[in-house]
């Protein structure tokens, strides 16, 4: 079984209200020194068999079409997951 990981982040110029809320909560819990937090999404897509270049290309298309909205988000990574399967 293979796995492809897709990371999606809000575009830098888009305000990230959730990241701001997390940033505000950190110092309240004593986690000091963080000047900014941005919150994104991670998708894990599993396939039977190996992650081929063809699979990765299909995932890239899915990432651009469904998993992200290019108006507000960037796909920052599409990669085969090398971790334990």
């Amino acid at each position: 079984m293979g796995r492809v990981v897709v990371d999606v982040m809000p575009k830098p110029e888009i305000l990230d209200p959730q990241g701001k809320a997390v940033a505000a909560a950190l110092p309240r819990l004593g986690f000091e020194g963080f000047t900014s937090v941005r919150q994104g999404k991670r998708f894990e897509l599993e396939v039977d068999g190996e992650v081929t270049e063809e699979v990765l290309e299909t995932v890239r298309q899915a990432a651009a079409t469904l998993l992200s909205n290019p108006v507000i988000e960037d796909v920052v990574r599409v990669a085969a997951d090398q971790g334990e399967g």
């Binding site: 809000p10 888009i14 305000l15 209200p17 959730q18 108006v71």
Partner: peptide, 9 residues
């Protein structure tokens, strides 16, 4: 365009 979470969350 698009809609994101309200600025006041």
């Amino acid at each position: 365009g698009s809609m994101i979470k309200n600025d006041h969350r």
